[in-house]
Design a binder for these strands. Structure first.
Length: 500
RNA sequence: CGGGGCGUGGCGCAGUCCGGUUAGCGCGCCUGCUUUGGGAGCAGGAGGUCCUCGGUUCGAAUCCGAGCGCCCCGACCA
């Protein structure tokens, strides 16, 4: 019974812990279809908070939302050579438009309804979006074209995990067209930076930024910029990507424009996306053995109020107080829930809301009403006194927004510290490297000669890959001289890790 | 696709080896009363194609055969 209530500790089996947290915090549930999941209201509320924040940032940077169709003609996918290569093996295809009764019983696709051209269910929308852009763009005056869409996509993955890799997932994909290479490059980097702001400030999940190697870049891109976060099991999570597509797609979809000088040129494209995978990242960045821990800025409920009472008279006094506290806090912009369930003891509610990761709990009992105080209990330790504090009501109401921000800051600092503590720098010995990858894991910063062969060897030996070629601010002050693998001259520093 | 595990009320499981009354336990659910400051108590109650199909048998959750599904590990994967 005690085992039923607790979670598998992270140290014992991280993967089991993760699944239990997601299911028991009611973020998501398995659906009847293998590899597909239902995002439950509590999990969807997190996604909505992510959407709200990101969408505002996209608008601030000049983008507009639009919606493109789920179905893409199969021929579109094959136009860009690398693109087909990258996605062909995981595509869902629609070939028929109706079913009919089978002679052997059951239903079969009606052969007469076979489509002229199969439709693929979008794994990403570059092809159809740039086909449409081609219709809309004639002149340099039509550029830049800055579009985002919120959508679902399907990738038929072999092995799936809740939020981290499912057959269908929700995401946003930005797609832009520019008149010059420099503008497109600037856009790809701008959105890369927007993601970084979001992950740092909203998710408290500080990623390492950099560029992907040739072998890891997006199929069809010239360059891929990535944000890699380190999870508590010391595996990397690719949390977002931004691609400089060059003219690869515009050439295939005839996305041309007339230049100011009167000539004709292909547009320069970018695309960038983050998905519901971020919810998995949030879980694996902040969760503990008690359950979920939500950064206040994403928490569906930042504060939950648990009223405590014995007698009816107490009940009405306490609930009245809970109500006025709720009204006051909502007025200062706090997302709050008053848990008035009658069939549950306060203790049971405490456990439930902790498992669900609510950052701050307010307990209100008869004693508190009498003393004009509120009991504040933080979800996490943050070095600022005990988790549980008795605070005069006025002071509590006035300081709760700041307390939430303090929790947010603490979580970011803790995540950053953990990332750095598990980043190994100055590793030159390949044996030592293998030891790290097969043992503690984490990010290893080391020299790379630039050869795909060395990359491949590491993957075979250790399952680790180059997550990013980090931007300057993340690099080791003293640049590595030798390639970790072959000992040849290091062309640049790489961040290696096992990844999700 | 390979390896492992598992399919029994909503959830978690026992029972299966060694066939035998009415399939059991915990949690959850419903009703009532008492409770409520860290996972409440008592009483009553509802809820089951034992994954499916076929076989053996007087008799199958249990034995045999085939199939299906899910989870985990690997291969695979922006």
């Amino acid at each position: 019974m005690a085992e039923e209530k607790g979670l598998t500790p992270r140290a014992e089996d991280f993967s089991a812990w993760y699944n239990e947290v997601v299911l028991r915090a009611e973020l998501a549930d398995y659906s009847p279809v293998r590899g597909s999941m239902v995002i439950r209201p509590y999990g969807y509320a997190v996604w909505e908070n992510m959407q709200r924040a990101l969408d505002a940032m996209f608008k601030e940077t000049g983008h507009q939302n639009a919606y493109f169709p789920l179905f893409i003609p199969q021929s579109f996918i094959s136009r860009e050579a690398e693109h087909v290569e990258g996605f062909a093996k995981e595509m869902a295809i629609v070939t028929h438009s109706r079913l009919k009764a089978s002679p052997e019983g059951g239903l079969i696709p009606d052969p007469e309804s076979k489509l002229e051209e199969p439709l693929v269910v979008r794994p990403t929308s570059e092809t159809i979006i740039y086909a449409m852009f081609a219709k809309w763009v004639q002149s340099y005056r039509d550029l830049p074209l800055l579009i985002n869409q919120w959508a679902n996509v399907v990738r038929w993955e072999m092995r799936t995990r809740l939020f981290l890799r499912t057959l269908e997932f929700l995401w946003q994909e930005g797609h832009t067209a520019h008149a010059t290479e420099a503008e497109a490059e600037e856009e790809a980097r701008r959105m890369h930076a927007v993601y970084r702001t979001f992950m740092d400030e909203w998710m408290a999940m500080p990623p390492v930024l950099g560029r992907k190697t040739e072998s890891e870049k997006f199929p069809g891109a010239v360059r891929t910029y990535s944000l890699e976060a380190l999870m508590q099991d010391n595996k990397a999570l690719q949390a977002g990507t931004s691609h400089m597509l060059g003219q690869n797609f515009s050439r295939q979809f005839d996305l041309k424009f007339q230049t100011e000088a009167g000539g004709e040129e292909y547009a320069w494209n970018t695309s960038w996306g983050v998905s519901t995978r971020l919810i998995g990242g949030m879980v694996m960045t902040h969760g503990d053995d008690t359950g979920l821990v939500m950064p206040p800025k994403l928490a569906p409920y930042q504060v939950v109020v648990v009223p405590i009472y014995r007698k009816d008279e107490e009940r009405s006094v306490v609930l009245e107080k809970a109500d006025s506290v709720a009204t006051a806090l909502r007025a200062s912009g706090v997302r709050l829930h008053v848990d008035t369930r009658e069939n549950m003891t306060p203790g049971a509610k405490f456990y439930e809301w902790e498992r669900k990761g609510v950052p701050l709990r307010i307990e209100i009992g008869p004693k508190d009403v009498a003393n004009g105080q509120l009991v504040l209990v933080r979800r996490i330790e943050d070095g600022d006194g005990p988790r549980k504090q008795f605070v005069p009501e006025d002071e509590a109401l006035a300081t709760i927004p700041a307390r939430l921000q303090a929790i947010q800051n603490t979580m970011l600092a803790a995540a950053r510290r953990r990332r750095e503590e598990n980043s190994h720098r100055g590793i030159e010995d390949y044996g030592r490297f293998r030891e790290i990858m097969e043992g503690v894991g984490g990010f290893v910063y080391a020299g790379w000669c630039g050869s795909p062969r060395c990359e491949e060897k590491v993957k075979e030996d250790t399952k680790a890959t180059i997550r990013v070629l980090p931007f300057e601010e993340f690099r080791t002050p003293e640049p590595p001289k030798r390639c970790l693998v072959c000992g040849g001259e290091a062309r640049e520093e790489a961040v290696w890790a096992r990844a999700y």
